[in-house]
Design a protein around this nucleic acid. Structure first.
Length: 102
DNA sequence: AATCTGACATATT
DNA sequence: CAATATGCCAGAT
């Protein structure tokens, strides 16, 4: 299935994102060793098992916005706010402030 | 093996 | 500043 090294690395990276911070798809892809595989990160998360216990909600796009829609969007937003991350009325996160630094 | 798809990013218009 | 086009790379069919 998706037991490839790429998938594993992406999972490791996401698992390492600290509570209260966020990272962009591009960040995760870069840290996973494939700087241009940002789309794959989303592709993986989408088909991730519901019980993976991965902080997938800390992954947003480079505009600081959640790329999901509908129900999932609301859930991710709530999860982020629950960690103390503020989101503007337009659904934007202040990346300069919450982006994971390493 | 070939083609299509997409929870993105960057450059260009 | 917003909209569009193109590149990207791993999965799915």
């Amino acid at each position: 299935m998706e037991n490839d090294s790429f998938s594993q690395r992406v999972i490791q990276v996401i698992a390492a994102i600290p509570c209260g911070t966020v990272a962009t798809y591009g960040d995760v892809a870069r840290l996973a060793g494939s700087p241009r595989a940002a789309r794959q990160v989303g592709g993986l998360l989408k088909r991730l098992p519901a019980d993976s216990r991965l902080p997938w909600h800390r992954i947003i796009n480079r505009h600081g916005q959640i790329s999901l829609q509908g129900d999932d969007l609301l859930r991710q937003r709530d999860a982020l706010e629950a960690e103390g991350i503020e989101i503007s009325d337009e659904g934007q996160v202040d990346l300069a402030r919450y982006r994971w630094q390493w």
